[in-house]
Write a protein that binds this DNA or RNA. Structure first.
Lengths: 219, 219, 219, 219
DNA sequence: TATGAATGAGCCTTCATTCAT
DNA sequence: TATGAATGAAGGCTCATTCAT
């Protein structure tokens, strides 16, 4: 007798569970997030059963579903947690920058250092996150747009300040900045050669400066 | 002593099947490739059962396995077929270029036009292909490296010619070129807004020229 | 650190699952064993989908895999469960035998009665179990060897006691005993004629006594 | 559009193809038989695709079906071909025997030598043939019964001659004879230890003689 | 008669998700 | 709130058999 209960993979009538306020819950929520980050990095999203996350988080399989609507939401939440942290860190760090170009430098240095020092996180963000499921892409869109906006904002600010060339399309500049470092980091993560991405930072900034910074300032 | 007459026979090995020589078989092979391109673009690799590809190709499910060792190999073969075509087209087009920078321009224009005119292909290359399975990444590595090599070769050539700044790390330059256009195309594919990526070509070239081309030449 | 609380959890290993200790789980384990015994007897191992076993055991298909690594392991486990029971019963029954020949008699009577009263079990042991898959043969080897050893041990014991002829090769005697009753039971299981194998016991023992027992004792 | 053609595994409306008379056909028929013998021995019946037989026989997959109704019939035909040869050889060899016990000795010596010298054949007859499919068992039944009858005939003959004990049930005696050598050969085939089964012949005959031959004659 | 590409039914197995405890 | 055993839908893949050539 086949049950009538649905097995819909993507049932978004179930709204996201959201981050719990209760500190005890929040701790377990974060434990699952960290476990998922590790597990996804280790096995790859599609080859990582929920049970692996549960085991790493030291909770039962079912417990995951008390904190997240489904496996996709776990992935999305990991991303949100990490990218929000990245964004707020960068916002803090750039508060004291003397101009927008310096802010971009800080952003790139910080971003590349954060990932360069944490291969698990880098693997997650560069590889595992890039899943084709449209639900995942939708869930990722908002915080990612925030990060994009941060970069693009610096570009526009720099153009207003005169430190960044005004003839450049700011949106393309954002894609140029993000795409370049994204590619550099992805290649590093996927490479079996052992090298330190952080050593590439100056080369990257050198090219970016040529591309974006106003002639006069480009010393 | 196995006869040499047949190409396919009953092949239960795990090795790649390779592109058939027999024109009739090659036609079916290509039909499956095209069907898979469409199906993967439409459903996403992991949400696309082999049966969907078979139906689109108008063959039985089992037939797929006469031409490809497994589903992963189908994905890899689609990529190889497409990227090799892209590479050889670009090699042809750049034969008449006056310098290496022009070659890079041709490459970018051609690449973005090819994908900009073919959203299905763009979706496949930018999104579906980026799967975390290590087998897939390995299968993709070789032809991708060829494409990378093409770009990096142009950069080095340009440095030798003096058209591209010699102080720039050629490998990083390659990542800039590829990463930028990759990001621009990916954003376009994922965007629900309708716009033409080809309109972004000049803006991209403008930034890249600033970034890479020698001061004197940078008019 | 995985908790010690559970036995099953999500176990994706390929190792044998083993008999569960928890009585509730053991009950389900045994239910599957019995269902498999029936199903294999009814359809034959290769013509018996796992789903048939599941249905007979009143569990879902997937549940089978919480208790057994794969279909082969189900077959092997049925055998182990049954043969171990047979061995321990015979060991108990022969404790009070006055000599080794009597032990052999007890063994044969018990074995033939057990199978003669249970055609399903007989069909399983005589027919379904004899699969050519080497994994199965390997899984069966150990408990079967134990049963062989039981017989051969009685022969050797009998020779030491003087009740069994010392000029006989004990290993060949074992094969003679086992082979004979095996053939008698197999013929019975496969026969469409309805007769009772147990009626053959005395005839068998008569021949075996002639063959094995010392002249003087052979009255 | 699912076709209506059936995929019945066991459609015996297709009658057996039978042994071809035309010598050219007969040659190919026998080639397939020999190839199947090898292939079944090598891979096991269920793990041996028809294509493996075809390849070994140097014919196309489809050709098999011009000579045999289906895979089961191939197995059955191999058996028939081999057992009939065995039977007629034994019939020839026993023509000159001085009594029925000698005939039994000849049968056992010949049988064990034939298989002992040909592990492929032994593996086929002892292991691969023992499949649970009832169609196979039915197909095998007739020639096997002939072989059984040969043995049982010798026993009865011996009892009439007085060389074999008259108090023994002839049918059980047949099962003893066949069961014993069957077990000895099976153990040999499955054993990874390298030894020669033919060395066991005298030991077996010794036990069987004790079991069956009249006291007076049992020297 | 021979070929071998094509078929497609079928099965083992996985694992996201649920729910009784 | 937490557990984890149970579920069962789904899909990759195999291979006996067919049939157009």
């Amino acid at each position: 007798m086949p049950s009538m209960k649905t097995n819909l993979k993507r049932d978004y009538s179930l709204e996201p569970k959201g981050v719990p306020d209760d500190p005890r819950k929040r701790a377990k929520y974060l434990a699952i997030i960290e476990a998922a980050l590790e597990a996804f990095s280790e096995y790859g999203y599609h080859d990582c059963p929920v049970s692996k996350i549960a085991r790493k988080a030291n909770v039962a399989d079912g417990t995951i579903y008390l904190y997240f609507a489904n496996k996709e939401e776990v992935l999305i939440s990991v991303f949100q947690e990490k990218i929000n942290r990245l964004i707020s860190d960068i916002e803090d760090l750039t508060k004291t920058s003397i101009n927008a170009w310096e802010k971009i430098e800080v952003l790139i240095r910080y971003h590349m250092t954060a990932l360069g020092n944490n291969r698990v996180l880098a693997n997650f963000l560069q590889i595992q996150l890039r899943q084709s499921s449209s639900n995942i892409r939708i869930g990722i869109a908002a915080p990612l747009k925030k990060f994009y906006g941060l970069i693009e904002g610096f570009v526009i600010e720099g153009q207003r300040e005169g430190v960044i060339d005004k003839t450049i399309n700011a949106n393309i500049a954002r894609k140029f900045i993000f795409g370049s470092i994204d590619e550099v980091i992805s290649c590093w993560v996927l490479s079996r050669r052992q090298y330190d991405v952080k050593d590439r930072i100056d080369d990257i900034l050198y090219i970016l400066r040529r591309a974006l910074v106003t002639e006069a300032k480009n010393f």
